[in-house]
């Protein structure tokens, strides 16, 4: 390790992660002995063919699922052995999620979707309002605050989802195939926003994708094959 690297904080660290689905019937080894570190400020893509274990790995890092073997540390907290309730609370304060299907609350407006997570954090009303306003402007939806998800395009919904993920001031954001349902223009627009936040606010992003245009924009690309990491490279921005 270089001295330059140690000055940066490691946010995520996994130790020999394995995940076996259906161990009693037809075992599926979705993850095999995965050890990675993700540092603060990274803009990292997780790529690999369908079924290679990207979602499984993101679920482990996000504390949505427990490994069969191995450990997951977020800022030196081991989340892989936390109780369910503690893990939910940990997610609320430390991890932002963006899903492939946007998954906004349909009865809430854009602003309410963003504000809700802060309400769960018991923040005060004024702070919630100001932050919601700021975030929606950052994702270019300052004028669509009162729109319901159904009134927004896929790209706009995903931008609301990014704003929601950021609202809780998490340590990092996990996005599982965030652009899979978007057309090229919307996908690039979303990437622009994420990149800008990463650059200007040092927000850490880890996203899975098999879209080459998205992979091209990542600074670090981790390639998975059959549940294991086959390649881990840092690429220079073009």
């Amino acid at each position: 390790m270089t001295s330059a690297k140690t000055s940066v904080m490691t946010i995520v660290r996994t130790e020999s992660l394995s995940r076996v689905y259906n161990p009693d019937t037809v075992p599926v080894h979705a993850l095999r002995d995965v050890s990675i570190e993700i540092d603060e400020g990274e803009f990292t893509a997780l790529r690999g063919p369908s079924g290679s274990g990207k979602t499984t790995l993101l679920n482990m890092i996000g504390g949505l699922d427990k490994p069969t073997e191995g450990k997951v540390f977020i800022n030196d907290h081991e989340i892989s052995n936390m109780k369910d309730g503690a893990r939910i609370d940990f997610r609320l304060h430390n991890i932002g999620f963006v899903f492939q299907h946007y998954n906004l609350i349909p009865v809430f407006t854009a602003a309410e979707n963003v504000a809700f997570i802060m309400m769960l954090q018991h923040r005060n009303k004024r702070e919630i309002q100001e932050r919601t306003d700021k975030l929606l402007r950052q994702v270019g939806l300052g004028d669509r605050q009162d729109a319901r998800p159904a009134q927004l395009s896929g790209g706009q919904q995903q931008r609301v989802a990014v704003a929601r993920a950021l609202a809780s001031e998490p340590r990092f954001i996990l996005a599982d195939e965030p652009t899979a349902n978007l057309d090229t223009e919307a996908a690039m627009n979303l990437l622009d926003i994420m990149e800008k936040m990463n650059r200007e606010q040092n927000i850490t992003f880890v996203f899975s994708t098999h879209d080459q245009r998205v992979i091209d924009r990542a600074r670090r690309v981790i390639t998975m094959v059959d549940g294991a990491i086959s390649q881990d490279e840092t690429q220079h921005q073009s």
């Binding site: 609370d89 997610r91 998954n103 349909p106 997570i117």
Partner: peptide
Amino acid sequence: MREIGVLISIGMSRGR
């Protein structure tokens, strides 16, 4: 189900 799953994912406690 899916929506509630999302709420739990992003940190809504089961009590809530």
